[in-house]
């Protein structure tokens, strides 16, 4: 092609003034890219038009300068790689999806697929390990839980026992603390001089309580029996068991004694005797 003719055809001026259709504009761009003299002519035309535009100079709002610089800072702060492709000077065509871009995508695809597969496998393996771990943990927890429930039941029983004990103790206490009580010290006789017991007798309520401070453990077929004595005559005040090792030997005797001037404890056959066996007199005390 004769470039001189092309230049003189006026198409470059139309292009520079923006009066060509998109397809015509692309032809001009191709020509300018191929022939430097066409490019030079085009540049001169464009310069003239921009110079002409200078006659319409207008000052924008003074605040716009900092707005522009802020935009630049924003772009740099958020993303410095996001570069839009715009056409060359005076270009009208959009160059989206150049061959270069496409081939880049195709190369990347299998690699991304492999990464995805690897990620899936890693996820599965971690998942299985996690399941085993948590299952074992759950088992342990269940065992511990059973132990705790068992312990809890034991504690409940213990508590119940202590509560009953406490009730008895507070009843005993009320009884012992009663100010109208007669407190009788029963001292050891010859058969067991170390023995000692205390009787709390309330003449108003006629109730009798015995505290065994110290008595020898009786044989399995024998039981101690308490007696009230009035004018030398013995009155049965009930049998009682020894509770070894508890230190708790308070006995609310299941009888009422209307009158007495002494108390005594003898060792009798199991269930007690109608009359005391005086050879087995352990402790005795007068009111």
């Amino acid at each position: 092609m004769n470039t001189k003719e092309y230049i003189q055809s006026g198409v470059l001026e139309l292009y520079a003034a923006g009066a060509l259709s998109d397809s015509e504009a692309r032809e001009v761009e191709a020509m300018a890219a191929q022939y430097p003299e066409v490019q030079a002519e085009l540049s001169a035309i464009q310069d003239a038009l921009v110079s002409y535009s200078a006659s319409f100079k207008k000052n924008p709002n003074p605040e716009l300068r900092s707005a522009v610089l802020n935009r630049i800072d924003e772009i740099e702060g958020i993303s410095s790689t996001n570069i839009l492709s715009i056409p060359e000077a005076a270009g009208k065509s959009n160059t989206i999806g150049t061959p270069g871009n496409n081939s880049f995508n195709y190369v990347q695809k299998p690699a991304r697929f492999n990464y995805l597969m690897a990620a899936v496998w890693i996820f599965l393996v971690l998942n299985i390990i996690g399941n085993v771990y948590f299952f074992t943990k759950l088992k342990n927890t269940e065992e511990q839980m059973a132990g705790v429930v068992n312990e809890n039941n034991k504690m409940k029983l213990e508590y119940e026992k202590i509560r009953l004990d406490m009730d008895k103790k507070s009843t005993d206490m009320k009884m012992v603390m009663n100010r109208s009580n007669k407190i009788v010290d029963l001292k050891g006789m010859e058969i067991a001089p170390q023995s000692f017991a205390t009787v709390y007798w309330n003449p108003n309520s006629k109730k009798v309580m015995l505290n065994v401070n110290s008595l020898p453990m009786p044989p399995a077929d024998k039981q101690y029996q308490l007696w009230a004595l009035k004018d030398g005559k013995p009155i049965d005040a009930g049998v009682f068991d020894m509770q070894p090792g508890t230190g708790d030997d308070m006995h609310m005797m299941p009888v009422t004694i209307a009158d007495a001037d002494a108390f005594a404890v003898t060792l009798e056959k199991k269930g007690g005797s109608p009359q005391p066996t005086l050879t087995q007199l352990y402790v005795m005390g007068k009111i």
Partner: peptide, 9 residues
């Protein structure tokens, strides 16, 4: 800026 603003405006 004034030249470009002139064109755009």
């Amino acid at each position: 800026s004034s030249l470009l603003f002139g064109i755009i405006a």
